[in-house]
Design a binder for these strands. Structure first.
Lengths: 335, 335
DNA sequence: AGATTTTTTGCAACCGGTTGCAAAATATCA
DNA sequence: TGATATTTTGCAACCGGTTGCAAAAAATCT
């Protein structure tokens, strides 16, 4: 079907090597030769077979993009940024949807079979060991949105989720809330665990504050809404730190559906600062996560690793910051 | 780096063909041989190089997944369904993000270089000619969510957008609205054009009804909200047919931010029936688009084409239906 | 112009597999 | 048990490219 290098060589009346060289930059070809070959290639509609060449060069320019976050709209942006960023560098994303799979073995094998040059694990829920499995099998890997650690075993680009939890707690305390709650994503998600840990570690210093917690079964609008509707049936806390903006928006919806008002009756603080959070009708107080920077940095790291596969693992942590909007009661008067 | 078939052959003391055969199903290998080879393979941690084998078999099991809809959350679900569906059939999605590119040539070339077995164009905005370019270059293609036609040039799996437009118009008319408007997605999107066409063709029979239109610059929450805020500054229509639920939700937000109520002051009908539309706080009347069926059918078609690349192009159209909720005024009393 | 250096080109082996064909090994039958 | 049919195995060529090496061609120098 497709035109091969050999056919071009015959048409141009030159050797196969000559054709190969005109399509490899940095190879030695005279102008005359190049023109002859390009002519023939154009006539025949030839374009080199990337896979065949990868056989000898050992590079496929394929990057596995592995994720299990297919419900949080923020990840559409993440995929957008990753695919564009990779493409801009001549790399091709091979997408792996883990669904609920948490064992890395099958995806590692699969990506190895396709000889990917590297893999990006884009997930805020998978443990560090997941990405580690790629490295162990010789696949350069960076874990984006993963748990950052002082002793990273693989490259991690992320925010400090523990600190985010603390930040949320500090904010609620400062606003004078005395009965607060954490509404996390799936309990097994590392980001949930870390945000939880930070939240409660900060509250430990405030024994007078009542604190509770529960978990939504996914990072999604619906899961947040369902969980909050459930909580509303008992007696809800004064303020909720939600593990993600999508949860928060579901939560806001549940609160309003129940006839209560935000922030008068219940306060909410989210995490991510997604676009919708800025809407006046939502106006969510949240913690900003610098997604674009995380993705860009992940790609840079990936690219660096292509040249230096055994690069010493590093954790890149980006700062988060509170974005004050309207879902928490105002600061009590300072006097 | 990776273990090759040759090394396994040596280790097992057999020919390379023997090893190859044990890893190809349907090949003739004795049990004894198979055990010997599998043993050696396991010891060495061998797994076959999919790309190398594709060279001779002519099949890569790679499917290009081409899209430019990276802002509409519904597409996260689309990607989820596609990636899972393809994976379940042993196919691998190679993702291509078109961004704003509308010329198929670069993506076609790229996918040909990677010898994909086929391509799925998942886009409600690209014209049929886009997918056609893949076919012309010998890449089996199905266009999902594309414009359906009575004389399809490529496989299309979709809904009838023109009919959706008509359906929306009929519904608004039946509710007694006399001043209606179409708020579409990008004007260049085929889905926008078709919904527009259907909407106004139906209204042509009702000369007494005032109708206007405008376009948001993307299928996204924000774009819908921005456009509606703009419209609210002049004097808005009584009811809006929005080209998509994400637009509708943005529109609802804009209306409420402006202090008006839905459906008392302004009616809204959307298209897609995304999860959020069901929320009580949104409760959007909309037209249901059977996304799951479209994706499943697209994959089936793709799989069928792998065996029969020159399959005669077909258009598969799935029915849409109105989902009545609370963003249109009730039906006027029948007497 | 002839000798020498530099650049360009083709040969042939290789990347990691698959496969048609014929020989070798087993199985089946009388 | 020997003859015949069937299955299993290895050889060698091939898939579509790349690349080290040496020969050929072109450029530079005296």
């Amino acid at each position: 079907m497709a035109v091969t290098l050999k056919e071009v060589a015959i048409r141009a009346g030159v050797s196969r090597s000559a054709v190969s060289r005109t399509f490899t930059d940095g190879a030695s070809v005279s102008d005359k030769m190049r023109r002859k070959v390009e002519r023939a290639a154009r006539d025949l509609g030839y374009s080199p077979n990337a896979l065949a060449s990868s056989l000898t060069t050992g590079r496929t320019k394929l990057i596995g993009l592995v994720s299990n976050n297919f419900h949080n709209p923020i990840f559409l942006q993440v995929f957008d940024l990753f695919t564009r960023g990779l493409q801009d560098r001549g790399l091709r994303p091979l997408l792996v949807n883990l669904s609920d799979e948490t064992d890395p073995q099958t995806s590692v094998r699969m990506l190895r079979q396709y000889s990917v040059d590297g893999a990006v694990v884009a997930s805020s829920t998978l443990p560090p060991g997941f990405a580690k499995a790629f490295r162990d099998e010789g696949v350069p890997v960076v874990h984006s949105f993963g748990r950052s650690s002082g002793a990273p075993e693989v490259h991690v680009v992320s925010i400090d989720n523990v600190e985010c939890g603390r930040m949320a707690a500090r904010t609620l305390v400062a606003r004078g809330y005395r009965n607060v709650a954490f509404l996390g994503g799936p309990e097994s998600a590392t980001s949930t665990q870390d945000r939880y840990a930070g939240f409660f570690s900060e509250l430990a210093a405030h024994r007078d504050i009542k604190a509770s917690y529960s978990f939504a079964d996914a990072y999604s609008f619906d899961a947040g809404r369902r969980e909050m509707l459930r909580l509303m049936r008992a007696n809800p806390a004064e303020a909720y730190f939600c593990g993600d903006d999508v949860l928060s928006i579901g939560v806001l919806s549940a609160i309003r559906e129940s006839g209560l008002r935000v922030p008068d009756d219940i306060g909410v603080i989210g995490l991510n600062d997604m676009e919708m959070s800025r809407w006046e009708s939502i106006n969510l107080t949240t913690i900003h996560q610098p997604i674009r920077q995380i993705v860009t940095s992940s790609i840079e790291l990936m690219v660096a690793m292509l040249d230096e596969p055994d690069r010493y693992p590093e954790a890149r942590v980006f700062p988060s910051s509170i974005v004050e909007r309207g879902t928490l009661r105002p600061l009590p008067p300072q006097n």
